[in-house]
């Protein structure tokens, strides 16, 4: 985590110190009176061909982080090195900072990074037919013409389990799950290498969720895709992810191999999260750890560790000093003062 990754490593994306503050404006003159620290010093990396799960409280900045990386939002600070062959003249791999790429570079790079959005209907233009929606990235990047594009679309639709005749329909004619698959087909249109999946399966029913997860895994195997996979369903995250990062109020508090994280969580927030997972068993008595107090406010976070007001293990130091994000065990990173001493319960 210390050395800058070189193009020879199998690191595809290396994000360091990423910050995104949204100004809070008040009054007639739109004076900035403060900032929502939606993403506040986030550091993580994604290896080639792996899936990094990203979980955390709703509103903790997962979407913002994803969007800042592909520059839908202008970053406040940080770097995001992305390994690509597109920008070097001889086609050799090179680490390019996405956050500093200029307009033209960015357009090229966007062929390699796609996004699947959280809200399946809102992310489809209601005025465009399904074929226009899926064809859009192809058209933007001048890939193929008329019948070729059509063929690609038919292919994509079949891959995501829709029918070719759905092409002429409009998004509002589909159910939630079908809409999301249209979004997935669009994301895959340019054969990207990194797909940021922002809750791609939240709106899907379990059998299509299973199909979609299988599909995403097949595509990963076929094209060596990498995913950043944001989801709330921890069982799904565990199923698809190689590694999982846990976010709390704009910061990553823990990151580890999926199995390790679920069995041996090192951060109290992860523990609380794990305890709240609903089990598909009506007789199961939940032993949920109830977090006290208010959810932290990203515009005015508490001093020290952001989680301390709700943490049942909090001690003095927690409210004074920001814990360092450190590698406690091999490949297991955590930001908690008491990580060494606590014995936390996994699932």
């Amino acid at each position: 985590m210390v050395a800058e990754p070189s193009p020879q490593d199998n690191i595809l994306l290396d994000v360091r110190g990423l910050k995104k503050y949204f100004p809070i404006q008040r009054g007639l003159l739109r004076r900035t009176v403060g900032y929502v620290k939606a993403v506040d010093d986030v550091t993580f990396f994604v290896r080639e061909g792996e899936t990094l799960g990203l979980v955390g409280e709703s509103g903790c900045g997962k979407t913002t982080a994803g969007r800042t990386i592909i520059r839908l939002y202008e970053p406040t600070a940080g770097s995001a090195l992305f390994k690509t062959r597109l920008l070097s003249p001889d086609g050799s791999p090179q680490m390019v900072d996405l956050l500093k790429a200029d307009k033209q570079q960015l357009k090229l790079l966007r062929q390699e990074i796609a996004m699947i959005f959280q809200d399946p209907i809102n992310s489809l233009n209601p005025r465009m037919s399904v074929s226009d929606i899926i064809a859009e990235p192809l058209v933007i990047h001048g890939r193929g013409k008329g019948p070729e594009v059509e063929e690609i679309i038919v292919n994509l639709l079949e891959r995501v389990g829709l029918r070719p005749e759905h092409m002429r329909r409009y998004p509002h004619e589909f159910s939630g799950g079908q809409r999301q698959r249209i979004g997935i087909a669009r994301a895959l249109a340019l054969n990207p290498r990194l797909v940021i999946c922002d809750e791609p399966v939240s709106a899907l029913d379990v059998s299509i969720q299973a199909q979609t997860l299988n599909l995403l895994q097949d595509l990963q195997a076929d094209f060596n895709l990498s995913y950043i996979f944001v989801a709330h369903d921890l069982s799904v995250v565990q199923h698809v992810s190689d590694r999982v990062a846990v976010m709390y109020v704009g910061k990553i508090v823990e990151m580890a191999d999926a199995e390790e994280l679920y069995i041996n969580p090192l951060h109290p927030y992860t523990e609380a999260l794990m305890s709240a997972v609903p089990k598909p068993d009506p007789l199961y008595k939940s032993e949920r750890i109830v977090m006290q107090g208010d959810v932290a406010d990203p515009s005015n976070p508490p001093p020290g560790c952001y989680f301390h007001p709700r943490c049942r293990y909090a001690v003095d130091i927690c409210s004074k000093q920001t814990p360092e994000f450190r590698e406690l065990r091999p490949d297991h990173f955590v930001a908690c003062h008491r990580a060494e001493e606590l014995q936390l319960r996994g699932v």
Binding site: V206, N214, Q217, S235, Q238, H239, A258, K279
Partner: peptide
């Protein structure tokens, strides 16, 4: 339907039954 859900805790990189 009941078979097609992943169960937390039982980690397997196998395909889900769909």
């Amino acid at each position: 339907l009941l078979q097609s859900i992943p169960h937390v805790g039982k980690k397997s990189r196998q395909r889900l039954a769909s």
